[in-house]
Amino acid sequence: MHIPDGFLDPKVWGTASGVSAGFTAYALYAVKEKLNEKVIPLLGITAAFIFAAQMLNFPVAGGTSGHFLGAMLACTLLGPLQGFLVMVIVLLVQCLFFADGGLTALGANVFNMGIVGGLFSYMIFIYIKALIARISGEKRALLISAAICSWLSVVIASAVCAVELALSGTIPLSVALPAMVSVHALIGIGEAAITTVVLAVVTQARPDLVHAMKLRLPAGQEV
C-alpha cells in the first residue's frame, strides 16, 4: 500500500511528514544507547528480510495482489522503536532507489506502515499477548497474538490510508474505506501467515533474539 505522488494533497502529506519525522527523530534518540554490536546486525538483517519479502506479491481475489508488510514482525523481533526504524529504512530505500512510494508520500507511508502498522499495532499486541498468556504458554501466546495483530496491522493501516485519500479529496471515504479494508483483510491473512511462521522459526532457533519473548506487563516498560 505504498502511496505514490499525486494521491495526497499538500496538507495531508505535509502533516504526515511532520508527524513521521518527529517519531523517527524520537526513535533514533530513544534507541541510541541500545545500538550495540549485538543489536545492529539484527536490525540490518531484519530490514533486509522485510525488503526481500515485500517484493513477493502473492495473488489475492480478483486480479489483485498483496505483499508482506513486516511492521509487526520487526516490532516483535526487535522491540517497537527499533522495528519502527527498520520500517523507516525499508520505506526510504524503496522510495529513493526503486521509485516505490512517492517522495512526497514517504511521510504518509511511514505513518501508515510504521506508526499505525508498527507502533500502534504493537501496543495492541502487548495487551492481547498478556491476555492470551493467561490461558496458554508464553510461546503460543506470542504466536497467536502476533498472528491476530499482524492481520490487524495491515487492515488498520489500509483504513488510515483510505482516510488520508479522503482528506486529500482524492476519493470519498464511503468509497475508499470499504474498498481498501476489504482487499487488505485478505492480504492480512498472508501477513499473519508469514509473520507467524518467521516468528515460530526464530523462537525455535534463537528465542533470546525475540524481543517480545521477554515482554511483560505493565505495558510500555522495557524488560
Binding site: M1, D5, T64, L96, G102, L103, S158, C161, A179, M180
Partner: peptide, 25 residues
C-alpha cells in the same frame, strides 16, 4: 497484478492522478 491500493485506485478511477503527476524524486 496490482496491489491492494493500486487496484482500488484503478477500480475507483483515481489511479490516473499518480500517472499525471511528475514524481517528486
Amino acid at each position: 497484478s496490482p496491489d491492494g491500493l493500486e487496484k482500488v485506485a484503478e477500480d475507483k478511477g483515481f489511479g490516473k492522478k499518480a500517472e499525471e503527476k511528475e514524481p517528486a524524486w
